[in-house]
């Protein structure tokens, strides 16, 4: 028993749409607490307070692969952070290792600055490609951290082993790091070395936890239902052959 690709996509789409309109005003609905997001909010407020700069690292993943979704989640985070801190003394800076994601980061920041009415303060260097390969990207971002030009780094995107270089540098400079990646090896490194790791699909919940809008909440509820559907299917798929084979 299995669902086709079309059915999975259709189911997810239907659930997102359903939860966008159904039960969204229910005051009893909430999301479980994820310490990394609590800490991220605190970090944002500290950066606004003391005029220090936040770095949103969008990773090295490109736009034409499965890893793009993590970068899209990172861009949502960038937008939310920019809306709060763009007009602070040291506006947040986005770094990435891919040209297309850099352009999207520039678009995201530009539209945020425009919404805040401070378009004149926007410039292209607020979103930088610090390198164009995974390790050179991390190498290019290191001076930001080591020179304390950024007080905190939120790693939200596709990261592999190079994440270890960024978090180690953050430790060395006494900064703060938060990280999530769709890459499981990257996740394991971030779990061990980041101050606040995001595990598994938590990186895709960034929008909902940073109040990016009701559809992000709906999306999480859809993911919950989808996940339990998968659990059900897994149990059926695994147990069925066992019982079929019994005499």
């Amino acid at each position: 028993m299995n669902l086709s690709d079309l059915q999975w996509i259709g189911l997810c789409l239907a659930l997102i749409l359903l939860f966008s309109v159904w039960g969204k005003n229910n005051p009893r609905r909430a999301l479980r607490s994820i310490p990394a997001f609590v800490q991220l909010r605190r970090t944002i407020e500290l950066s606004v307070e003391d005029g220090s700069r936040l770095q949103i690292s969008l990773g090295r993943g490109g736009v034409l692969g499965p890893e793009s979704a993590a970068a899209f989640a990172g861009l949502t985070l960038l937008r939310q952070v920019a809306e709060i801190a763009a007009d602070s003394d040291q506006p947040p800076i986005a770094t990435t290792g891919d040209g297309a994601i850099m352009l999207l980061a520039q678009d995201t920041l530009r539209s945020s600055y425009q919404r805040l009415g401070i378009s004149d303060q926007y410039h292209l260097r607020l979103a930088q490609a610090t390198g164009l390969t995974p390790f050179s990207y991390a190498a290019g971002a290191l001076p930001f951290i080591l020179d304390r030009r950024v007080s905190a780094s939120a790693l939200a995107g596709s990261f592999g082993e190079e994440a270890g270089l960024l978090t180690a540098a953050t430790q060395l400079s006494g900064g703060f790091s938060l990280g999530g990646s769709e890459n499981l090896s990257g996740q394991s490194i971030l779990f061990a070395s980041a101050d606040q790791p995001l595990i598994g699909e938590e990186i895709f919940a960034t929008g909902a936890y940073m109040d990016a809008g009701p559809i992000h909440q709906a999306s999480l509820r859809a993911q919950d239902v989808l996940r339990w559907s998968v659990i059900l299917l897994l149990i059926i798929t695994s147990l069925l052959p066992l019982f079929e084979g019994l005499p």
Binding site: L75, A105, R110, F204, I215, S219, L226
Partner: peptide, 21 residues
């Protein structure tokens, strides 16, 4: 991760997430 990716992709195709500004 694949469920999260699916939902994130669909949010973009719904026009709810617009990283292109």
């Amino acid at each position: 991760v694949s469920i999260g990716t699916l939902a994130t992709g669909l949010r973009i195709l719904l026009g709810a997430d617009r990283p292109y500004g």
